[in-house]
Design a protein around this nucleic acid. Sequence first.
DNA 1: GAGCAATGGTTAATCGTTTAATCAAATGCA
DNA 2: TGCATTTGATTAAACGATTAACCATTGCTC
Lengths: 338, 338
Amino acid sequence: MRATLKDVAQLAGVSAATVSYVLNGKRSISEETRHRVLEAVRQLDYVPDLNARGLSMRDSKLIGVVVPQTEPGDRLMFQNSFYSEVLGSIEYYARQQGYHILISATDANESYLTLAKKRNLDGIIVIGMYPSEFYQQMKKSQIPIVLIDSYCNDYYYHNIRIDDAYGSYLATQYLLQCGHRDLAFFVGRVQENGVMKKRLTGFQQALAEFGAPFREESVFEGQIDYASGVELAGRLLASKLPVTAVVAAADILAIGAMKGLYEAGRRVPDDISIVGFDDLEISQYLTPGLTTVRQQISLKGQKAVELLLKHIAQPDLTKQEEILPLQLIERGSVRRLG
Amino acid sequence: MRATLKDVAQLAGVSAATVSYVLNGKRSISEETRHRVLEAVRQLDYVPDLNARGLSMRDSKLIGVVVPQTEPGDRLMFQNSFYSEVLGSIEYYARQQGYHILISATDANESYLTLAKKRNLDGIIVIGMYPSEFYQQMKKSQIPIVLIDSYCNDYYYHNIRIDDAYGSYLATQYLLQCGHRDLAFFVGRVQENGVMKKRLTGFQQALAEFGAPFREESVFEGQIDYASGVELAGRLLASKLPVTAVVAAADILAIGAMKGLYEAGRRVPDDISIVGFDDLEISQYLTPGLTTVRQQISLKGQKAVELLLKHIAQPDLTKQEEILPLQLIERGSVRRLG
DNA sequence: GAGCAATGGTTAATCGTTTAATCAAATGCA
DNA sequence: TGCATTTGATTAAACGATTAACCATTGCTC
């Protein structure tokens, strides 16, 4: 059986309270008993039970992370390595501070709020966007929350994000500067996803600014996964639009698109150029390497953890928003025209 | 403030015990009070605190998952989407049964065993292989454990794995049948990683069986990441060996290798053929598509969870081992010779 | 109507911590 | 020496659940 505080106390010949005080140093203890206690701890291989501690302290040293899932009740979107990387980063920085993370999706049969109560979560990091009821619910809970990549400005949550519009502006600008005039845009569900909407507007802005034509029908909308990228490429080709380049609102889409184009006999960048968004690790290992807008994915996780812990330590912290930098990375998927 | 059992009891005009009995149905309760209690629960939005419950019941409904990390103290190996997929699967099936997962790496400053005690983990799933002290330690803890992809047969743990040797046998056999005779093998650290060692032996067996030559110097050893794949391709080319095809012990390596070969001006499959191992989601979206040995990654997670929960429910369960099926998937990265 | 079992509820101990309130001994100071 | 203060330890309540043991009604049986 596991050793408890009481066991340690007994072995050291002191009271349980004394052991507790020795362990968390909240009171002065004589050098002698401190020694005896620590020796007993060592002998019994004693590790304090965080649950019991949490019950007293009313905390849990647990941070919830909400990740989107394709279908409710479906499994997590770990496929998209964007999420994996953010998660890895969150886990890392949380662990440094003695927290663990509880990853879960918003589930149909159990709201995330219920989970937060059940597990006494100290705080929550929410990645992506959700229906507004979700935020309403969360607000009531009073739990510290940091959003990553959200545009719910009407809610009093902290937010770590990038300037998505500017990102696709960069991508589009680059293609225009390379001499492309007829561009298509591959994107996720614009209505449901603020990030996608913003990225679309950045595309439009750049076109407008450079006096290039924008047509509704050159925006191709799908899910954010490889298969969808392939499909959008098919739809583009079927449309017969005279497109020489495409801006994809996510690397995942760009990668699928490259595959789709290749299967249809088109070569990237010779026949058609493509720029992605995110700079996933895989993107540099494709052939050709994917030219894309880099965001510092793991920095997002780091900043989110820092902000959340700050809020936990300081509950009256006012709403903070941090916008991380972007950078266009030139690789081989774009051809210079003219 | 959150509602507690006591609050519910008060509102319903009964004792706390009664509320508890209503909620977990361990005793008969009159229809009338049952109703009053449930109504109070609804009104207060009461959710039982799992920590407090766990303190009484001495469990936590928490499953630990150990994932390898490149460097101790480094962040989790989420980059490798093999892990992401297993994790997603584990999370999904655990959640179905009311468990949550706690992902963490084996850390230098805190052994996983300490974590297990701290958090009162009900069980642990260990992915990959670790130094033998790790298993020694774990054994003492008495916590139910299931290993995924381990060859520590000397320990009394359950194991979910594939027949790694057979997998690379399949890959190698396929290349030989396509007329290739001069093969190279790209692999992770063979000494430290039983999986890699097995995959190497499968390669050798196939060569022997088909009477093809095996040379020590055609085995290229590195890490298991994209960059390493690129590097191994460079070393292969520098070696000037007359190789027409390579078997990669992991898709990650194969993908990096394809990039490395391409950068050096060689074309896959025209100049050189390549077969991978794992069948990651990305592998089908490469150009050319990667011919590879498919393992059912998410099934691994599912089986591991099932077995672990079975053991938790039935502590005297004897050691179980399950070996999941493999299948060669033909895509475009191999050229038929002759 | 006495005796007994079944039903439906309460009381109180327990799980492993923390910590406010006490208490005893030692020390400082006049 | 006597009194106040400091130091170092203990006692006991609390955190939010579960559950064994107990108690009071009710309903049956003979």
